[in-house]
């Protein structure tokens, strides 16, 4: 049963987008959604917890520089054995988050590949990729 469902999920990449106000009060909602999506990919409990914290850290970083009233956009790409998450928001300064912080340290330790990018309109995006354990790169 479990194997069959994992194979079904592995076929096409599902993309889930969640848009919510760039306010701290909504981070708990996003963490819950993250955990639910990670569970769909049969991530272990530890991996689900890692993702929950990683997504929270990425968003918390962006909230500090978000344009007031802006929306936080989170895209989750579910690819059978990995999850790519991109979180982005319009910022006031267009400056990419410092990597010399507790937040970045936690984020990069818990999610394998992490990066950030700035666009011309001051939108900052943080991307992270988490692979399910026992998955070849």
């Amino acid at each position: 049963m479990a194997q069959a469902s994992a194979q079904t999920q592995a076929a096409p990449e599902d993309v889930v987008t969640i848009k919510l106000p760039a306010a701290g009060a909504y981070l708990s909602v996003l963490r819950t959604a993250t955990a639910g999506l990670a569970a769909r990919l049969d991530f272990t409990l530890d991996e689900i917890e890692d993702l929950r914290i990683a997504v929270d850290e990425a968003c918390a970083m962006l909230l500090t520089q978000a344009v007031p009233g802006a929306d936080l956009e989170c895209t989750f790409a579910l690819d059978g054995d990995s999850m790519r998450v991109a979180v982005s928001v319009l910022t006031l300064d267009g400056v990419e988050p410092s990597r010399d912080t507790f937040a970045w340290t936690v984020l990069s330790a818990l999610a394998g590949d992490v990066d950030s990018a700035a666009e011309a309109d001051n939108r900052i995006t943080i991307t992270l990729l988490k692979r399910r354990s026992g998955t070849a790169r």
């Binding site: 963490r31 929950r52 914290i53 929270d56 850290e57 918390a60 507790f102 937040a103 340290t105 936690v106």
Partner: peptide, 9 residues
């Protein structure tokens, strides 16, 4: 139940 770097700070 949950702690992130904000809490560490």
């Amino acid at each position: 139940d949950f702690l992130d770097s904000t809490g560490l700070g």
